[in-house]
C-alpha cells in the first residue's frame, strides 16, 4: 500500500460528520433530543419518521438553518456550531448542499436554468462566462435536462425537472455532504424512480455523503446504507437499512414497517 493510499484510507476511517447529543427545543416542546451519530465519507444515511417526529428539525440543525440548544456537530474535524457564520455559509455553498422538498425553495424561479446552476460557481469566484455556461450545460446533461432548455426559467419545467435542476445546482461545486429533505416527495411515482436512479449514480460516482430525510421507506431501502428511525424527537432505532426494515427491534419501527402497504 502506497503512502497516499494509506492516507486516503485513514481519511475514509474518519467520520465526515460527527453529531453528539444534539437537542433542539421549541419552548417546552421537543424538536429533537439527544441525537448522536457518525457519518462516514461515501455513506448515505436515511432518517425516517412520521410528521412531527423531529427529522426535519434535526436536518435543519445539521445544515445550520437552526441553532440547536445542546450538543456538538463536527464536520471534517471542525466544530460547526462554533464556526463563524462566514465560514459556515462558505461551507454551505461549496462542500455542502441542501436539496429542498419543494424545488421552489431551492431554486431561483426568476433566473434561467443555466443561471441557477452557475450561481454557486459565481459565488465561489468563477468569472468566465463561457466556462460557467459550459459547466452548467454539462450538469444539465448529467441530470438529463436537454441542453436547449439552458435559458428557460424553472417555472417552465415540470416538477421532476425542477427537482433535477435543483440537484444540479447543488452538486455543481462538487460537494462532499448533501442534505436532502424529502427529495422525491410530491413527485409522480414514475418520476421518483428516475430521480432515485439519478441520485444513486451521483452518490456512487461523486463519493457523496448524504443525509436524506423522508417518510418513504421504499426510498430509503433503495438509497440509504444506514437508517435512523425517529419518533417524538428521539432516535428510537438505528442500524443498517435493510436490517432495520426487515428485523425492526423497536415497537414503533415494527409498527411503521408493518403499516406500509405491500404492492
Amino acid at each position: 500500500m502506497g503512502v497516499v493510499e494509506a492516507d486516503m484510507r485513514a481519511a475514509l476511517d474518519q467520520p465526515l460528520l460527527s453529531v453528539t447529543g444534539l437537542t433542539k427545543r421549541y419552548g417546552a416542546r421537543i424538536g429533537c433530543s439527544d441525537v448522536s451519530f457518525d457519518l462516514f465519507p461515501g455513506e448515505v444515511m436515511g432518517i425516517v419518521g412520521e410528521s412531527g417526529s423531529g427529522k426535519s428539525t434535526l436536518l435543519s440543525c445539521l445544515a445550520g438553518h437552526l441553532v440547536p440548544d445542546e450538543g456538538q456537530v463536527t464536520y471534517s474535524g471542525r466544530d460547526v456550531l462554533a464556526m463563524a457564520e462566514t465560514e459556515r455559509r462558505r461551507l454551505s455553498r461549496t462542500e455542502w448542499a441542501y436539496v429542498h422538498q419543494n424545488p421552489r425553495d431551492g431554486l431561483r424561479m426568476g433566473v434561467s436554468a443555466g443561471g441557477n446552476v452557475g450561481e454557486r460557481l459565481m459565488a465561489v469566484g468563477a468569472r468566465h462566462y463561457g466556462e460557467i455556461r459550459g459547466a452548467a450545460a454539462d450538469w444539465l446533461g448529467r441530470v438529463e435536462i436537454a441542453a436547449d432548455r439552458i435559458d428557460d426559467r424553472p417555472s417552465a419545467f415540470s416538477g421532476g425537472m425542477q427537482q433535477r435542476l435543483q440537484i444540479a445546482r447543488n452538486l455543481v461545486t462538487g460537494p462532499r455532504l448533501v442534505f436532502m429533505d424529502e427529495p422525491t416527495g410530491g413527485l409522480d411515482v414514475s418520476v421518483q424512480a428516475r430521480l432515485l436512479d439519478l441520485l444513486r449514480g451521483l452518490v456512487r460516482d461523486m463519493g457523496l455523503s448524504v443525509i436524506i430525510v423522508t417518510h418513504d421507506l421504499a426510498v430509503v431501502r433503495l438509497l440509504a446504507d444506514r437508517l435512523m428511525v425517529m419518533k417524538g424527537g428521539r432516535v428510537v432505532e438505528q442500524g443498517l437499512t435493510d436490517q432495520v426494515l426487515d428485523d425492526p427491534q423497536d415497537a414503533y419501527t415494527q409498527l411503521l414497517v408493518s403499516s406500509v402497504l405491500q404492492v
Binding site: R93, G115, G118, L121, M122, Y129, I132, R133
Partner: peptide
C-alpha cells in the same frame, strides 16, 4: 456574498 450580482449579468448575456 456577491455571486448573485454575477448571476444578473449572466442572465443578461444568456438572453
Amino acid at each position: 456574498e456577491y455571486g448573485l450580482m454575477h448571476v444578473k449579468l449572466y442572465e443578461d448575456i444568456a438572453r
